[in-house]
Design a binder for these strands. Sequence first.
RNA 1: GGUUUCUUGGCCGAGUGGCUAGGCAGAGGUCUGCAAAACCUUGUACGGCGGUUCGAAUCCGCCAGAAACCUCCA
Length: 490
Amino acid sequence: MNQSLYIHNSLTRRKELFEPLNPPHVGVYVCGPTVYGDAHLGHARPAITFDLLFRYLTHIGYKVRYVRNITDVGHLENDADEGEDKIEKKARLEQLEPMEVVQYFTNRYHHNMEQLNVLPPSIEPRASGHIIEQIELIKKILEAGYAYESNGSVYFSLDKYAKSYPYGELSGRVLDEQAIQTRNLDGQDEKRFPLDFALWKKAAPEHIMHWPSPWSEGFPGWHLECTAMSTKYLGDTFDIHGGGMDLLFPHHECEIAQSTASLGHESVRYWMHNNMITINGQKMGKSLGNFITLNEFFDGSHQLLEKAYTPMAVRFFILQAHYRSTVDFSNEALQASEKGLQRLMSGIHLLQKLQPSEKSTVNIDDMEQKCYQAMNDDLNSPMVIAHLFDGLRIINLVNDGKETIAEVDLQQLKKTYHHFVFDVLGLKDEKQTNKQTELINGLMNHILQMRMQAKANKDFVTSDSIRHMLNELGIEVKDRKDGFDWSIQD
RNA sequence: GGUUUCUUGGCCGAGUGGCUAGGCAGAGGUCUGCAAAACCUUGUACGGCGGUUCGAAUCCGCCAGAAACCUCCA
Protein backbone atom coordinates (compact mmCIF):
# COMPACT_ATOMS: atom_id res chain seq x y z
CA MET A 1 0.00 0.00 0.00
CA ASN A 2 2.64 2.40 1.09
CA GLN A 3 4.88 1.03 -1.60
CA SER A 4 4.43 0.98 -5.31
CA LEU A 5 3.33 -1.79 -7.58
CA TYR A 6 5.80 -2.89 -10.18
CA ILE A 7 4.69 -5.00 -13.10
CA HIS A 8 6.63 -6.60 -15.89
CA ASN A 9 5.85 -4.93 -19.18
CA SER A 10 6.26 -7.36 -22.04
CA LEU A 11 6.87 -4.48 -24.40
CA THR A 12 9.97 -3.22 -22.61
CA ARG A 13 10.83 -6.58 -21.06
CA ARG A 14 11.38 -5.06 -17.68
CA LYS A 15 9.55 -4.35 -14.47
CA GLU A 16 8.04 -0.92 -14.46
CA LEU A 17 6.35 1.16 -11.81
CA PHE A 18 2.64 0.93 -12.40
CA GLU A 19 1.12 4.36 -12.72
CA PRO A 20 -2.48 4.39 -13.91
CA LEU A 21 -3.57 6.90 -16.47
CA ASN A 22 -6.53 8.18 -14.45
CA PRO A 23 -6.15 7.14 -10.85
CA PRO A 24 -7.97 5.78 -8.98
CA HIS A 25 -9.39 4.18 -12.10
CA VAL A 26 -7.60 1.35 -13.84
CA GLY A 27 -8.59 -0.24 -17.12
CA VAL A 28 -7.61 -3.82 -17.80
CA TYR A 29 -8.31 -5.83 -20.92
CA VAL A 30 -7.58 -9.54 -21.16
CA CYS A 31 -8.04 -11.87 -24.11
CA GLY A 32 -10.65 -14.40 -23.11
CA PRO A 33 -11.46 -17.77 -24.60
CA THR A 34 -12.67 -18.76 -28.02
CA VAL A 35 -15.68 -20.75 -26.99
CA TYR A 36 -15.67 -23.83 -29.16
CA GLY A 37 -14.69 -26.37 -26.50
CA ASP A 38 -14.38 -26.92 -22.77
CA ALA A 39 -11.79 -24.92 -20.89
CA HIS A 40 -8.62 -26.82 -20.04
CA LEU A 41 -5.90 -26.27 -17.49
CA GLY A 42 -4.19 -23.83 -19.83
CA HIS A 43 -7.24 -21.57 -19.79
CA ALA A 44 -7.11 -21.48 -16.02
CA ARG A 45 -3.70 -19.82 -16.08
CA PRO A 46 -4.56 -16.43 -17.56
CA ALA A 47 -7.92 -16.46 -15.83
CA ILE A 48 -6.28 -16.90 -12.43
CA THR A 49 -3.31 -14.67 -13.21
CA PHE A 50 -5.45 -11.73 -14.17
CA ASP A 51 -7.94 -12.51 -11.46
CA LEU A 52 -5.02 -12.07 -9.09
CA LEU A 53 -4.21 -8.75 -10.74
CA PHE A 54 -7.84 -7.66 -10.62
CA ARG A 55 -8.16 -8.64 -6.98
CA TYR A 56 -4.92 -7.02 -5.95
CA LEU A 57 -5.55 -3.74 -7.75
CA THR A 58 -8.97 -3.64 -6.14
CA HIS A 59 -7.53 -4.52 -2.76
CA ILE A 60 -5.05 -1.67 -2.82
CA GLY A 61 -7.82 0.74 -3.59
CA TYR A 62 -8.11 1.11 -7.33
CA LYS A 63 -11.41 1.19 -9.11
CA VAL A 64 -10.85 -1.39 -11.78
CA ARG A 65 -12.77 -1.86 -14.97
CA TYR A 66 -11.84 -5.35 -16.05
CA VAL A 67 -12.84 -6.32 -19.57
CA ARG A 68 -12.44 -9.91 -20.70
CA ASN A 69 -13.88 -10.84 -24.03
CA ILE A 70 -15.53 -13.92 -25.43
CA THR A 71 -14.41 -14.72 -28.96
CA ASP A 72 -17.38 -16.10 -30.81
CA VAL A 73 -16.60 -15.21 -34.40
CA GLY A 74 -13.65 -14.63 -36.63
CA HIS A 75 -11.20 -17.06 -35.10
CA LEU A 76 -10.20 -19.15 -38.06
CA GLU A 77 -8.67 -22.56 -37.92
CA ASN A 78 -5.71 -22.00 -40.09
CA ASP A 79 -3.40 -19.09 -40.59
CA ALA A 80 -4.80 -15.65 -40.08
CA ASP A 81 -6.93 -15.68 -43.16
CA GLU A 82 -7.75 -19.18 -44.22
CA GLY A 83 -9.68 -22.15 -43.02
CA GLU A 84 -12.99 -22.50 -41.31
CA ASP A 85 -14.21 -20.47 -38.37
CA LYS A 86 -13.74 -22.57 -35.24
CA ILE A 87 -17.21 -21.90 -33.95
CA GLU A 88 -18.79 -22.68 -37.29
CA LYS A 89 -16.93 -25.90 -37.61
CA LYS A 90 -18.12 -27.05 -34.24
CA ALA A 91 -21.66 -25.98 -35.11
CA ARG A 92 -21.53 -27.90 -38.37
CA LEU A 93 -20.22 -31.04 -36.67
CA GLU A 94 -22.82 -30.89 -33.90
CA GLN A 95 -25.62 -29.65 -36.15
CA LEU A 96 -26.24 -26.64 -33.96
CA GLU A 97 -26.63 -22.95 -34.52
CA PRO A 98 -23.24 -21.28 -34.04
CA MET A 99 -24.75 -19.21 -31.27
CA GLU A 100 -25.88 -22.40 -29.56
CA VAL A 101 -22.29 -23.57 -29.53
CA VAL A 102 -21.20 -20.20 -28.19
CA GLN A 103 -23.81 -20.15 -25.45
CA TYR A 104 -23.16 -23.73 -24.42
CA PHE A 105 -19.42 -23.34 -23.99
CA THR A 106 -19.72 -19.86 -22.55
CA ASN A 107 -21.98 -21.24 -19.84
CA ARG A 108 -19.56 -24.03 -19.11
CA TYR A 109 -16.65 -21.62 -19.06
CA HIS A 110 -18.46 -19.42 -16.56
CA HIS A 111 -19.17 -22.40 -14.37
CA ASN A 112 -15.52 -23.45 -14.40
CA MET A 113 -14.44 -19.93 -13.55
CA GLU A 114 -16.84 -19.81 -10.66
CA GLN A 115 -15.47 -23.10 -9.39
CA LEU A 116 -11.97 -21.66 -9.53
CA ASN A 117 -13.23 -18.61 -7.64
CA VAL A 118 -12.28 -16.38 -10.55
CA LEU A 119 -14.27 -13.17 -10.24
CA PRO A 120 -16.42 -12.26 -13.23
CA PRO A 121 -15.03 -9.35 -15.24
CA SER A 122 -16.71 -5.96 -15.16
CA ILE A 123 -17.58 -6.28 -18.83
CA GLU A 124 -17.52 -9.45 -20.92
CA PRO A 125 -18.06 -8.35 -24.50
CA ARG A 126 -18.57 -10.72 -27.40
CA ALA A 127 -17.02 -10.21 -30.78
CA SER A 128 -20.29 -10.89 -32.56
CA GLY A 129 -21.94 -8.14 -30.55
CA HIS A 130 -19.44 -5.57 -31.78
CA ILE A 131 -19.51 -5.94 -35.54
CA ILE A 132 -20.43 -2.29 -36.00
CA GLU A 133 -17.50 -1.13 -33.91
CA GLN A 134 -15.19 -3.39 -35.87
CA ILE A 135 -16.44 -2.06 -39.17
CA GLU A 136 -15.91 1.50 -37.94
CA LEU A 137 -12.38 0.59 -36.93
CA ILE A 138 -11.67 -0.82 -40.38
CA LYS A 139 -12.94 2.41 -41.92
CA LYS A 140 -10.52 4.40 -39.79
CA ILE A 141 -7.60 2.22 -40.77
CA LEU A 142 -8.60 2.52 -44.43
CA GLU A 143 -8.84 6.29 -44.10
CA ALA A 144 -5.41 6.40 -42.53
CA GLY A 145 -4.16 4.47 -45.53
CA TYR A 146 -2.96 1.36 -43.80
CA ALA A 147 -5.43 -1.08 -45.31
CA TYR A 148 -6.77 -1.96 -48.72
CA GLU A 149 -9.78 -3.71 -50.14
CA SER A 150 -9.30 -6.75 -52.26
CA ASN A 151 -12.17 -8.70 -53.73
CA GLY A 152 -14.56 -7.82 -50.92
CA SER A 153 -12.07 -8.44 -48.18
CA VAL A 154 -9.99 -5.84 -46.38
CA TYR A 155 -6.38 -6.44 -45.42
CA PHE A 156 -4.04 -4.59 -43.15
CA SER A 157 -1.09 -3.29 -45.13
CA LEU A 158 1.79 -4.34 -42.98
CA ASP A 159 4.61 -3.24 -45.24
CA LYS A 160 3.18 0.25 -45.46
CA TYR A 161 2.60 0.36 -41.73
CA ALA A 162 6.14 -0.77 -41.02
CA LYS A 163 7.45 2.21 -42.93
CA SER A 164 5.61 4.65 -40.64
CA TYR A 165 5.72 2.91 -37.31
CA PRO A 166 7.96 0.42 -35.62
CA TYR A 167 6.51 -3.03 -36.03
CA GLY A 168 7.46 -6.10 -34.03
CA GLU A 169 8.55 -4.43 -30.81
CA LEU A 170 6.46 -6.72 -28.67
CA SER A 171 7.59 -9.99 -30.16
CA GLY A 172 11.08 -8.90 -31.09
CA ARG A 173 10.39 -9.66 -34.71
CA VAL A 174 11.67 -7.59 -37.56
CA LEU A 175 9.98 -7.51 -40.90
CA ASP A 176 12.38 -8.84 -43.41
CA GLU A 177 13.33 -6.08 -45.86
CA GLN A 178 13.43 -8.51 -48.72
CA ALA A 179 10.12 -10.01 -47.84
CA ILE A 180 8.57 -6.56 -48.00
CA GLN A 181 10.02 -5.76 -51.39
CA THR A 182 9.39 -9.10 -52.96
CA ARG A 183 6.22 -9.22 -54.98
CA ASN A 184 3.95 -12.04 -54.12
CA LEU A 185 4.11 -14.13 -57.27
CA ASP A 186 0.90 -15.88 -56.57
CA GLY A 187 -1.58 -13.80 -58.54
CA GLN A 188 -4.50 -15.60 -56.99
CA ASP A 189 -3.71 -14.29 -53.56
CA GLU A 190 -5.76 -11.34 -52.47
CA LYS A 191 -2.98 -10.08 -50.27
CA ARG A 192 -0.33 -7.73 -51.56
CA PHE A 193 2.17 -8.84 -49.02
CA PRO A 194 2.23 -12.25 -47.41
CA LEU A 195 2.25 -10.95 -43.86
CA ASP A 196 -0.75 -8.70 -44.36
CA PHE A 197 -3.59 -9.88 -42.18
CA ALA A 198 -7.34 -9.78 -42.66
CA LEU A 199 -9.48 -7.08 -41.12
CA TRP A 200 -12.60 -8.17 -42.95
CA LYS A 201 -13.22 -11.36 -44.86
CA LYS A 202 -15.81 -11.81 -47.55
CA ALA A 203 -17.92 -14.79 -46.59
CA ALA A 204 -17.94 -17.84 -48.79
CA PRO A 205 -21.46 -18.97 -49.72
CA GLU A 206 -21.47 -21.82 -47.24
CA HIS A 207 -20.31 -19.58 -44.43
CA ILE A 208 -23.12 -19.29 -41.87
CA MET A 209 -22.06 -16.28 -39.80
CA HIS A 210 -21.85 -13.11 -41.85
CA TRP A 211 -22.80 -9.47 -41.62
CA PRO A 212 -23.25 -6.67 -44.12
CA SER A 213 -20.43 -4.21 -44.57
CA PRO A 214 -19.37 -1.59 -47.10
CA TRP A 215 -17.09 -4.16 -48.71
CA SER A 216 -19.03 -7.41 -48.69
CA GLU A 217 -21.27 -9.68 -46.76
CA GLY A 218 -18.65 -11.13 -44.46
CA PHE A 219 -17.09 -11.31 -41.03
CA PRO A 220 -14.31 -9.57 -39.09
CA GLY A 221 -10.76 -10.78 -38.67
CA TRP A 222 -9.72 -12.27 -35.38
CA HIS A 223 -7.29 -9.58 -34.27
CA LEU A 224 -9.82 -6.84 -34.77
CA GLU A 225 -12.23 -7.63 -31.98
CA CYS A 226 -9.80 -6.99 -29.16
CA THR A 227 -8.77 -3.62 -30.53
CA ALA A 228 -12.37 -2.56 -31.14
CA MET A 229 -13.70 -3.72 -27.79
CA SER A 230 -10.80 -2.64 -25.61
CA THR A 231 -10.82 0.90 -26.90
CA LYS A 232 -14.61 1.06 -26.83
CA TYR A 233 -14.81 0.24 -23.13
CA LEU A 234 -11.47 1.49 -21.85
CA GLY A 235 -10.67 4.42 -24.10
CA ASP A 236 -8.14 5.11 -26.81
CA THR A 237 -5.38 4.71 -24.28
CA PHE A 238 -5.76 2.34 -21.37
CA ASP A 239 -3.62 0.83 -18.66
CA ILE A 240 -3.13 -2.91 -18.91
CA HIS A 241 -3.60 -5.49 -21.64
CA GLY A 242 -3.08 -9.11 -20.68
CA GLY A 243 -3.15 -12.55 -22.21
CA GLY A 244 -1.21 -15.73 -22.72
CA MET A 245 2.33 -15.58 -24.06
CA ASP A 246 1.29 -17.54 -27.10
CA LEU A 247 -0.78 -14.55 -28.14
CA LEU A 248 2.22 -12.23 -28.29
CA PHE A 249 2.60 -12.97 -31.95
CA PRO A 250 0.78 -12.44 -34.10
CA HIS A 251 -2.35 -11.50 -32.16
CA HIS A 252 -1.06 -8.76 -29.89
CA GLU A 253 1.42 -7.47 -32.41
CA CYS A 254 -1.48 -7.05 -34.80
CA GLU A 255 -3.53 -5.32 -32.15
CA ILE A 256 -0.77 -2.78 -31.69
CA ALA A 257 -0.61 -2.22 -35.42
CA GLN A 258 -4.37 -1.79 -35.67
CA SER A 259 -4.73 0.68 -32.86
CA THR A 260 -1.64 2.62 -33.90
CA ALA A 261 -2.78 2.77 -37.52
CA SER A 262 -6.26 3.97 -36.57
CA LEU A 263 -5.36 6.33 -33.73
CA GLY A 264 -1.81 7.33 -34.49
CA HIS A 265 -0.64 5.96 -31.16
CA GLU A 266 -0.55 2.73 -29.21
CA SER A 267 -3.48 2.10 -26.89
CA VAL A 268 -1.85 -0.07 -24.30
CA ARG A 269 0.45 1.26 -21.61
CA TYR A 270 1.44 -2.04 -19.97
CA TRP A 271 1.39 -5.44 -21.63
CA MET A 272 1.32 -8.45 -19.35
CA HIS A 273 1.66 -12.06 -20.44
CA ASN A 274 1.30 -15.23 -18.46
CA ASN A 275 3.46 -18.22 -19.31
CA MET A 276 2.24 -21.62 -20.40
CA ILE A 277 1.38 -24.76 -18.49
CA THR A 278 3.33 -27.71 -19.74
CA ILE A 279 2.81 -31.41 -19.49
CA ASN A 280 5.96 -33.50 -19.62
CA GLY A 281 7.78 -30.33 -20.57
CA GLN A 282 5.55 -29.62 -23.53
CA LYS A 283 2.90 -27.02 -23.84
CA MET A 284 -0.57 -28.19 -23.02
CA GLY A 285 -2.59 -27.30 -26.06
CA LYS A 286 -5.43 -28.29 -28.24
CA SER A 287 -3.32 -28.82 -31.30
CA LEU A 288 -1.05 -31.17 -29.38
CA GLY A 289 -3.97 -33.11 -27.98
CA ASN A 290 -2.34 -33.29 -24.56
CA PHE A 291 -4.70 -31.04 -22.68
CA ILE A 292 -6.80 -31.94 -19.68
CA THR A 293 -10.05 -30.06 -19.25
CA LEU A 294 -10.94 -28.45 -15.96
CA ASN A 295 -13.98 -30.68 -15.65
CA GLU A 296 -11.71 -33.68 -15.96
CA PHE A 297 -9.53 -32.34 -13.17
CA PHE A 298 -12.52 -31.85 -10.95
CA ASP A 299 -13.89 -35.35 -11.46
CA GLY A 300 -10.61 -37.15 -12.05
CA SER A 301 -11.81 -38.75 -15.25
CA HIS A 302 -8.75 -38.13 -17.45
CA GLN A 303 -6.43 -41.10 -17.71
CA LEU A 304 -3.38 -39.04 -16.80
CA LEU A 305 -4.91 -38.14 -13.47
CA GLU A 306 -4.39 -40.34 -10.46
CA LYS A 307 -7.33 -38.77 -8.70
CA ALA A 308 -9.76 -35.87 -8.81
CA TYR A 309 -8.43 -32.49 -7.75
CA THR A 310 -10.55 -29.78 -6.23
CA PRO A 311 -10.77 -26.41 -7.95
CA MET A 312 -8.89 -24.79 -5.10
CA ALA A 313 -6.07 -27.31 -5.37
CA VAL A 314 -5.76 -26.36 -9.03
CA ARG A 315 -5.87 -22.68 -8.20
CA PHE A 316 -3.27 -23.05 -5.46
CA PHE A 317 -1.06 -25.09 -7.77
CA ILE A 318 -1.11 -22.29 -10.31
CA LEU A 319 -0.53 -19.59 -7.71
CA GLN A 320 2.48 -21.44 -6.32
CA ALA A 321 4.37 -20.60 -9.49
CA HIS A 322 5.06 -17.09 -10.68
CA TYR A 323 2.81 -16.18 -13.59
CA ARG A 324 5.70 -15.60 -15.98
CA SER A 325 7.23 -19.03 -15.37
CA THR A 326 6.16 -22.14 -17.13
CA VAL A 327 4.66 -24.63 -14.75
CA ASP A 328 4.81 -28.32 -15.43
CA PHE A 329 1.81 -30.44 -14.60
CA SER A 330 2.27 -33.67 -12.69
CA ASN A 331 0.18 -35.62 -10.24
CA GLU A 332 2.97 -35.35 -7.72
CA ALA A 333 3.15 -31.56 -7.95
CA LEU A 334 -0.61 -31.22 -7.75
CA GLN A 335 -0.84 -33.47 -4.73
CA ALA A 336 1.90 -31.51 -3.03
CA SER A 337 -0.15 -28.37 -3.61
CA GLU A 338 -3.25 -30.05 -2.34
CA LYS A 339 -1.59 -30.98 0.92
CA GLY A 340 0.01 -27.60 1.32
CA LEU A 341 -3.35 -25.93 0.82
CA GLN A 342 -4.95 -28.16 3.42
CA ARG A 343 -2.25 -27.21 5.88
CA LEU A 344 -2.76 -23.54 5.15
CA MET A 345 -6.49 -23.82 5.64
CA SER A 346 -6.24 -25.77 8.88
CA GLY A 347 -3.79 -23.16 10.11
CA ILE A 348 -6.37 -20.49 9.39
CA HIS A 349 -8.99 -22.44 11.32
CA LEU A 350 -6.58 -22.65 14.19
CA LEU A 351 -5.90 -18.94 13.96
CA GLN A 352 -9.56 -18.21 14.69
CA LYS A 353 -9.30 -20.15 17.94
CA LEU A 354 -6.08 -18.66 19.29
CA GLN A 355 -6.27 -17.05 22.67
CA PRO A 356 -4.55 -13.70 23.08
CA SER A 357 -2.09 -13.09 25.88
CA GLU A 358 -0.88 -10.01 27.68
CA LYS A 359 1.97 -9.53 25.33
CA SER A 360 3.50 -10.98 22.23
CA THR A 361 6.64 -13.04 22.10
CA VAL A 362 6.30 -13.23 18.37
CA ASN A 363 7.01 -10.51 15.90
CA ILE A 364 4.42 -10.42 13.19
CA ASP A 365 4.85 -6.78 12.34
CA ASP A 366 6.69 -7.32 9.13
CA MET A 367 4.71 -10.24 7.81
CA GLU A 368 1.98 -8.09 6.34
CA GLN A 369 4.62 -5.83 4.91
CA LYS A 370 6.43 -8.74 3.29
CA CYS A 371 3.23 -9.95 1.67
CA TYR A 372 2.61 -6.54 0.15
CA GLN A 373 6.20 -6.34 -1.00
CA ALA A 374 5.87 -9.68 -2.73
CA MET A 375 2.67 -8.67 -4.48
CA ASN A 376 4.14 -5.33 -5.44
CA ASP A 377 7.01 -7.14 -7.07
CA ASP A 378 5.14 -8.17 -10.20
CA LEU A 379 2.50 -10.20 -8.40
CA ASN A 380 4.83 -12.68 -6.77
CA SER A 381 2.18 -15.02 -5.44
CA PRO A 382 4.61 -17.88 -4.60
CA MET A 383 6.47 -15.51 -2.33
CA VAL A 384 3.24 -14.45 -0.63
CA ILE A 385 2.41 -18.09 -0.08
CA ALA A 386 5.85 -18.70 1.41
CA HIS A 387 5.26 -15.87 3.89
CA LEU A 388 1.87 -17.29 4.75
CA PHE A 389 3.50 -20.63 5.51
CA ASP A 390 6.03 -18.86 7.70
CA GLY A 391 3.12 -17.31 9.56
CA LEU A 392 1.67 -20.78 10.06
CA ARG A 393 4.64 -21.61 12.22
CA ILE A 394 3.80 -18.65 14.45
CA ILE A 395 0.19 -19.78 14.69
CA ASN A 396 1.18 -23.30 15.64
CA LEU A 397 3.73 -22.20 18.19
CA VAL A 398 1.20 -19.92 19.85
CA ASN A 399 -1.30 -22.74 19.82
CA ASP A 400 1.25 -25.02 21.48
CA GLY A 401 1.84 -22.42 24.15
CA LYS A 402 5.45 -22.00 23.14
CA GLU A 403 4.84 -18.42 22.09
CA THR A 404 2.24 -15.86 23.04
CA ILE A 405 0.45 -13.22 21.07
CA ALA A 406 -1.22 -10.02 22.20
CA GLU A 407 -4.73 -9.15 21.13
CA VAL A 408 -3.65 -6.37 18.82
CA ASP A 409 -1.14 -8.62 17.06
CA LEU A 410 -3.68 -11.41 16.83
CA GLN A 411 -6.12 -9.11 15.11
CA GLN A 412 -3.47 -7.99 12.68
CA LEU A 413 -2.51 -11.57 11.93
CA LYS A 414 -6.11 -12.51 11.26
CA LYS A 415 -6.56 -9.49 9.05
CA THR A 416 -3.42 -10.27 7.08
CA TYR A 417 -4.47 -13.85 6.44
CA HIS A 418 -7.92 -12.79 5.47
CA HIS A 419 -6.68 -10.18 3.06
CA PHE A 420 -4.10 -12.29 1.35
CA VAL A 421 -5.60 -15.76 1.41
CA PHE A 422 -9.17 -14.91 0.59
CA ASP A 423 -9.22 -11.43 -0.94
CA VAL A 424 -6.01 -11.38 -2.97
CA LEU A 425 -5.10 -15.00 -3.71
CA GLY A 426 -8.80 -15.72 -4.00
CA LEU A 427 -8.65 -19.04 -2.20
CA LYS A 428 -11.67 -20.30 -0.41
CA ASP A 429 -12.37 -22.89 2.17
CA GLU A 430 -13.92 -25.75 0.30
CA LYS A 431 -15.56 -27.20 3.35
CA GLN A 432 -18.92 -25.60 2.90
CA THR A 433 -20.94 -24.53 5.83
CA ASN A 434 -24.63 -24.91 5.25
CA LYS A 435 -27.53 -26.12 7.36
CA GLN A 436 -26.65 -29.74 6.77
CA THR A 437 -23.06 -29.40 7.84
CA GLU A 438 -24.01 -27.30 10.83
CA LEU A 439 -26.28 -30.12 11.90
CA ILE A 440 -23.54 -32.68 11.38
CA ASN A 441 -21.08 -30.53 13.27
CA GLY A 442 -23.48 -30.38 16.18
CA LEU A 443 -24.07 -34.11 16.17
CA MET A 444 -20.39 -34.90 15.87
CA ASN A 445 -19.66 -32.60 18.73
CA HIS A 446 -22.08 -34.46 20.98
CA ILE A 447 -20.89 -37.89 19.96
CA LEU A 448 -17.26 -37.03 20.45
CA GLN A 449 -17.96 -35.36 23.77
CA MET A 450 -19.41 -38.69 24.91
CA ARG A 451 -16.32 -40.41 23.68
CA MET A 452 -14.16 -37.95 25.59
CA GLN A 453 -16.16 -38.74 28.68
CA ALA A 454 -15.60 -42.44 28.17
CA LYS A 455 -11.91 -41.84 27.71
CA ALA A 456 -11.78 -39.78 30.84
CA ASN A 457 -13.34 -42.73 32.65
CA LYS A 458 -10.75 -45.01 31.07
CA ASP A 459 -13.59 -46.79 29.37
CA PHE A 460 -11.59 -47.49 26.25
CA VAL A 461 -13.98 -50.17 25.06
CA THR A 462 -16.69 -47.56 24.63
CA SER A 463 -14.37 -44.89 23.23
CA ASP A 464 -12.86 -47.30 20.71
CA SER A 465 -16.24 -48.60 19.65
CA ILE A 466 -17.47 -45.06 19.02
CA ARG A 467 -14.39 -44.38 16.97
CA HIS A 468 -14.83 -47.64 15.11
CA MET A 469 -18.45 -46.86 14.40
CA LEU A 470 -17.52 -43.47 13.00
CA ASN A 471 -14.73 -44.98 10.93
CA GLU A 472 -17.27 -47.31 9.39
CA LEU A 473 -19.18 -44.23 8.27
CA GLY A 474 -16.04 -42.84 6.71
CA ILE A 475 -15.28 -40.37 9.47
CA GLU A 476 -11.76 -40.13 10.77
CA VAL A 477 -11.32 -39.11 14.39
CA LYS A 478 -8.14 -37.47 15.57
CA ASP A 479 -7.47 -37.05 19.26
CA ARG A 480 -5.84 -33.87 20.35
CA LYS A 481 -4.26 -32.93 23.60
CA ASP A 482 -7.28 -30.95 24.68
CA GLY A 483 -10.04 -32.31 22.50
CA PHE A 484 -10.56 -33.82 19.11
CA ASP A 485 -10.70 -33.23 15.40
CA TRP A 486 -12.58 -35.17 12.84
CA SER A 487 -12.88 -35.22 9.12
CA ILE A 488 -14.89 -36.98 6.48
CA GLN A 489 -12.73 -39.15 4.28
CA ASP A 490 -12.90 -38.52 0.56
C1' G B 1 17.02 -21.13 -39.47
C1' G B 2 14.94 -16.39 -36.89
C1' U B 3 12.79 -14.20 -32.23
C1' U B 4 12.23 -14.79 -26.96
C1' U B 5 13.26 -17.42 -22.65
C1' C B 6 14.73 -21.16 -19.39
C1' U B 7 18.40 -24.86 -16.83
C1' U B 8 18.11 -24.42 -8.68
C1' G B 9 18.58 -29.99 -3.50
C1' G B 10 14.51 -36.78 -4.22
C1' C B 11 10.08 -33.85 -6.58
C1' C B 12 7.67 -28.91 -7.25
C1' G B 13 9.18 -24.02 -7.02
C1' A B 14 10.95 -18.61 -5.32
C1' G B 15 15.01 -15.38 -4.97
C1' U B 16 19.46 -12.64 -4.68
C1' G B 17 26.36 -9.89 -6.07
C1' G B 18 28.26 -11.47 0.32
C1' C B 19 22.86 -12.98 4.96
C1' U B 20 17.81 -20.03 6.05
C1' A B 21 12.71 -18.90 0.44
C1' G B 22 8.60 -21.99 0.83
C1' G B 23 5.82 -26.56 -0.18
C1' C B 24 5.73 -32.07 -0.85
C1' A B 25 8.48 -36.40 0.25
C1' G B 26 12.40 -38.35 3.72
C1' A B 27 14.81 -38.46 8.71
C1' G B 28 14.77 -37.37 14.07
C1' G B 29 11.71 -35.72 18.09
C1' U B 30 7.15 -34.04 21.01
C1' C B 31 2.26 -35.35 22.19
C1' U B 32 -0.48 -39.88 23.17
C1' G B 33 -4.39 -45.78 26.72
C1' C B 34 -4.01 -47.37 21.51
C1' A B 35 -4.40 -45.44 16.61
C1' A B 36 -4.24 -41.56 13.42
C1' A B 37 -3.27 -36.79 12.85
C1' A B 38 -0.96 -32.59 14.29
C1' C B 39 3.19 -29.87 15.79
C1' C B 40 8.65 -29.03 16.36
C1' U B 41 13.58 -29.85 14.34
C1' U B 42 16.39 -31.10 10.01
C1' G B 43 18.37 -30.28 4.01
C1' U B 44 23.29 -25.82 2.25
C1' A B 45 21.20 -26.91 -4.17
C1' C B 46 21.76 -23.45 -8.08
C1' G B 47 23.78 -27.25 -16.26
C1' G B 48 29.40 -27.13 -18.01
C1' C B 49 33.79 -24.00 -18.97
C1' G B 50 35.95 -19.31 -18.77
C1' G B 51 35.78 -13.89 -17.37
C1' U B 52 34.55 -9.36 -14.25
C1' U B 53 34.79 -8.77 -8.76
C1' C B 54 37.56 -8.56 -2.33
C1' G B 55 33.36 -12.02 -3.17
C1' A B 56 28.73 -14.97 -8.21
C1' A B 57 24.30 -19.65 -8.10
C1' U B 58 23.15 -14.13 -8.97
C1' C B 59 26.73 -9.77 -13.96
C1' C B 60 29.41 -10.93 -18.98
C1' G B 61 31.07 -14.55 -22.77
C1' C B 62 31.22 -19.38 -24.83
C1' C B 63 29.35 -24.45 -24.80
C1' A B 64 25.56 -28.14 -23.77
C1' G B 65 20.41 -29.19 -23.07
C1' A B 66 15.16 -27.68 -23.05
C1' A B 67 10.84 -24.78 -24.21
C1' A B 68 7.55 -21.09 -26.43
C1' C B 69 6.54 -18.16 -30.74
C1' C B 70 7.54 -17.85 -36.18
C1' U B 71 0.20 -21.77 -38.93
C1' C B 72 -4.77 -22.22 -34.81
C1' C B 73 -3.92 -22.85 -29.48
C1' A B 74 -4.39 -19.49 -22.70
